[in-house]
Design a binder for these strands. Structure first.
Lengths: 204, 204
DNA sequence: CAATATTAACCGAACGATCGGTTCATAACA
DNA sequence: TGTTATGAACCGATCGTTCGGTTAATATTG
């Protein structure tokens, strides 16, 4: 009926509320998740849940904000701005997979957004900036002669990022494939050839 | 107020209703789309819409059914069962991209399903069978010596399919990239190397 | 062929349930 | 004692769905 004693349970912090929310969003999807579901997952009532966040949309903003912040931080890392563009692409791709494994719920919230509301539109716009940064690196890598692809740079960028991001829909920590292996696997899929290219040369 | 004259407009067929529904689902998402939205898109009232389909869930079933039927038909094609496994994988992957471009709304409905309801669970189970078929081909290709990958077959299968399927979220017919180019691009991403592998050999 | 009966295709209105969100009282903390 | 954190009760809106009624098309009958 009122506040819970600190000796029983510490009061929620906002980031804990967001943790719970994005976790349920990951499993059930954003739209299919009601505020009542989230409150139940937190073990409090809906009205108590609203004490910590002002709206469902705010939870979305906080969630995707985490994902977008993590993505753009990668672009500022030293390995993302120094050296040949091919190496920078490899680094960003590897770090992206790491983020997907570590912040899976938040990334899922981002990549599943349809742009139905202004808030979603803003998130998609920021994501588009990330894609553009990747495309620019691909173009630079081609200019440097370090990358030879048979498609437009934007398409290569989209497919590579798509493969990396698709991981959010099935990866489970502690599952049969480790996060480290996953990073290597995505890089290998994009940069290595699984067939003998000397026999049927794709990049002559 | 009642039935529309045939001279004005032909009555809807069920598949036309499904066409409309999956189209709106693609843009707004299944959960975010109300039956009223669908009726408005069809130009009839909500209750009239219910004359053609019994429930929203039935629309989902009919939609994902289309996608799953198309996928499993690919597995029965001659090029999917004859010849070296590498070639069969290439063919299935290319045909998958074709289906993604041609039946984009239906595929989107399938890959976005979270398994929240029994109907969704059934759809995901069928999809899993398709993934398994792909994995088996990868294993066979490795055994034949036609495929050399640095990861588990199931992982390679998931990433390749993930890259192909990720296309549903951005491809638009008549856009900057044609469906044919897209098919080639996905195959190239998976089977070609964009870097000089003789310098830094990944498959020694 | 004209009258009649039946079915197909639609609409307006309303249903119960659930949605996101609010108000207010109350107990614990500082 | 004022602030913080909670629960009970509740609100209007919207959801998927249903129902009663209406008209166009079609099949049957005389």
């Amino acid at each position: 009926m009122a506040r819970i004693s600190n000796s029983v349970r510490q009061p929620f912090r906002v980031d804990e509320i967001v943790d719970i929310a994005v976790g349920v969003f990951l499993e059930r999807g954003y739209d299919a998740t009601s505020m009542g579901d989230l409150a139940k997952a937190a073990g409090i009532t809906k009205s108590s849940f609203y004490y910590h966040v002002s709206s469902k949309e705010e939870l979305f903003e906080l969630g995707v904000g985490r994902a977008l912040d993590a993505l753009f931080l990668v672009l500022k890392e030293h390995e993302s701005v120094a050296g040949p563009a091919v190496g920078r692409i490899r680094h960003v791709l590897r770090r992206l997979v790491e983020i997907v494994t570590r912040q899976r719920p938040e990334v899922a919230l981002l990549v599943r957004a349809r742009g139905n509301t202004p808030v979603e539109k803003r998130a998609l716009a920021r994501r588009k900036q990330f894609d553009l940064a990747m495309t620019l690196m691909v173009e630079q890598a081609i200019a440097e002669g370090g990358l030879r692809i048979r498609m437009e740079p934007a398409l290569f960028s989209r497919l590579a990022l798509g493969a990396a991001v698709s991981v959010v829909e099935w990866y489970r920590p502690g599952g049969s494939v480790s996060a480290r292996d996953l990073v290597d696997a995505v890089e290998s899929l994009v940069f290595d050839s699984p067939v003998d290219e000397t026999a049927a040369p794709a990049n002559p």
